[in-house]
Amino acid sequence: MAVREAEPLGSLREVKEAGLDREDLLGIYRNLLITRGVEERGHILYRQGKIPGSFYTGRGNEASAVGVATAMGPDDVGTPLHRDMGVHVTRGVEPWRIFAQYMGRADGPTKGKDGNVHMADSKLGLLAMVSHLPAMLPVAVGCALAFRIRQEPRVAVGWFGEGAAARGDAHEAMNLAGVRRLPVVFICDNNQWAYSTPTHLEYPIEHLADRAAAYGFDGVVVDGTDVLAVYREAKRAIEKAREGGGPTLVECQTLRMEGHAVHDDAFYVPKELFERWAERDPLERFRSWLRENAELSDDEEEEIAGGVKRLLNEAIRRADESPLPDPASLLEGVYATPEDLDTPHHK
């Protein structure tokens, strides 16, 4: 079909042209490590019984999340999902608050009212996801509508999984965005599985991005384990939207490298598939690229990894010090007050 398949990014020079200097690249690497580290540490805390409820990770999707978030402008907004920890990390959410959220503590972004990745810092331009997928897509389109009405050069980014793409919300969101050429970019985290359901039972076409044509905008498929390729495609799409060129559907192809959540051993995923995709681990890929193309030294590598380790240790310590929420806070904020409208977006 007509959808474009993105080229990988090659040399340091090409990357510079795409807008990233060496500092940015090291920052991306660091964000990738933090993203994976937060989820690995979270998993340990979960097994230690410190995290109630369930636990989800985005292992395998780190490059896709970090790549897109790196391409967003400071005033852009987004609605990341349960595989997109990298978006929160890249936008600057402090890891200790993420751990506090995981553990249901009073200092988590939702103050214990919601769990796992159901959180966001609105000051960083992120909106907290709901469980119902992909209900945040129409909301992202609404953000873009506000930008369009006010003629602001801002873009909204909406994420969805290839499974949730089967729901009507995805259709209504993309159709409205297409009809009104709104400044929104749709990112499909295509990790090949929706819980235990494979892609051919979710959609009958080759690429999900093929659907873009039906809504009158462009679709592109990108290797979601290549952080630089994701960055470049997201950047193109975001800048196009900003300039009035309308939406783009960017499909990031990955494999969900663990079960749907920690209770699921993913017995239904062929072992060879895991083996094949393990060779394309997004962190390892980018690390080798940095060594080959950007002269990443052993010392630098150690310094970054050590820094991330210290950050996470400190984050867990601080989160663990945060109190459990006061039961009396249950009824707080069911209704907003006029003062609540003094948020960054409500002017």
């Binding site: 389109v141 159709n175 409205l176």
Partner: peptide, 24 residues
């Protein structure tokens, strides 16, 4: 400011929600 939407109640109310969070 007077937007004729497609026949899409989900997108109308979901879109209104997003716009409201952005200050409209």
């Amino acid at each position: 400011r007077v937007i004729d939407a497609p026949l899409s109640e989900t997108a109308i109310v979901g879109g209104a929600t997003g716009a409201a969070i952005m200050g409209m």
